[in-house]
Structures are given as structure tokens and as C-alpha cells.
Amino acid sequence: MRFALIDGFCKKNTILMSNQDEMIEIEKFFLDGYDKHADEIFRHIAFRIFDRDRAKDILQDTFSRTWEYLVKGRKIDNPRAFLYKVANNLIIDEVKKRTHLSLDGLAEAGVQIEDPTRFENKLSISFDYKESVSLLEQLEEDYKRVMIMRYIEELSVKEIARVLGVSENLVSVRLNRALTKLRNLI
């Protein structure tokens, strides 16, 4: 009986050991994903909502939801695509909740746009990006998304399609429409 008990204990702890190993693996996968993709995802969020602090909150939420997904035992084949998808859903919720300050809105609020320091303080984005912000603001969310991925992250149409889970043709159409809209502004 004693041997049976010992045997049972060893089997149980083999199972427990493998659970612990699994957790360590998941945590490593998760943190590697953070190290690799955090800047890119943060940049994407920030250029969609124009708010650095909120972008950090949303980045954090993106990764914490990803963690919750992983600990339910689910697999992520394409971490980058998954992160973009989670971030995009959070961005859409954020955009619906608030109207971000447009440059017109800033002017109405009495902000002197020519003063880069005031611009920086209001949106926590350096004056260097003023032109990018100004152009992106003219676009609907679907076009903004592909423009950021194409011209800031420098992803190919194929890569964008893969990340968004849509056809390359649709990505091309959106890019062309965005470019048409921006043509008169440049």
C-alpha cells in the first residue's frame, strides 16, 4: 500500500510539474511577444487615438487580454495579428466613447497650433508628427489603420492582409481610397 501511495504521489506531481512547466512556457511566450511587439502596437494605438497616456492603458489592456486568452489554454499562431486584432477592438471602443481633439478642435479650445510646445502638451505627441496626425485625422478608421501599417510600420500589402485577416485586394482598395483623399492635402 505504501508503494501505491508513493506511486500515486509521483504521478500526481508529474501532472502538476507539467502544469507548472506549461505556465512557465506561456509566460515566456507572452513576455517575448511583449518585447517584440509592444512598440509597434503602442505606435499604432497612439496614431489612432492621439493620446499617449490612453495609448499606454490600451496597450496594457491589449496584452492583459492576450494573457487571459492564453491561460484558458488557447493557442495563438500569429501573435502579431492577434495583438493587432485585440488592440483594434479596444481602439474602436475608445473612438466611440470619445471624439479626439481635431486640430480644428484644438484651435477652438484656444490652442495655438504654431506653438509646438502647446501641441505637445495637449496630445503628448511631438511636433515632428504634426503632419502625420493632420493627415490621419482626415481618414475614416479603416483607412487610417491601413495607412499607419503601410507608411509608418512599413508592412507590405500582403503582411497587412495577413495581420487584418482580409484579402490583399481589400487592403489595396483601402490604401488607394485613402491616398485619393489625401492627394489634395499634400
Binding site: D39, A46, D128, S132, Y151, I152, L179, I186
Partner: peptide
């Protein structure tokens, strides 16, 4: 090219 010039700076924006 103009767009790449404008948006290219965006790549420097990071945490």
C-alpha cells in the same frame, strides 16, 4: 515619396 517622408518620422514614435 512625400507620404513616406511625412509618415516615416512616425516610426521614431515609441515607448
Amino acid at each position: 515619396e512625400k507620404l513616406k517622408q511625412i509618415f516615416g518620422k512616425g516610426k521614431n514614435f515609441k515607448l
